[in-house]
Amino acid sequence: MKKVIVFVILIIIIVIGYNYIYQDHRNVTEEQASYSISALKISEEFFNNPVTSEKKYLNKTITISGLVTAIHKNNLTLNTKVFCMLTKTQFSKINSKIKVKGRFIGYDDLLEEIKLDQCHIIKQD
């Protein structure tokens, strides 16, 4: 009887341990966005205060609405200021108004752009 209990506990520990070590990646698609903001507003925030803004948004899931100014296979740019890396290719048109959800990874001071990865389009007209 005692042996069985020890065995069961061991199995539980192994399962928990395995799930901890091989846990899933965070899923930005399903996460609730911490901030929702327009592309123009957020670029203004970064223009005025790059350091504190970067701290505020770093690694957060945010939704950004704006005008598409450039599209490539796996990325798009909103209002020439917000650069989004898409998880998968999604159709959109230049000059269309869209809303994108993604994770903020940093402010690119070489190009003065806000960079997001793991993005997907959640709404477009």
Binding site: H25, L58, I105, L110, D117
Partner: peptide, 14 residues
């Protein structure tokens, strides 16, 4: 060149 450290993706989430 400029790299965002948070942008490094690993196979293993942990």
């Amino acid at each position: 060149a400029l790299v965002f450290v948070k942008g490094f993706r690993f196979k293993n989430a942990l």
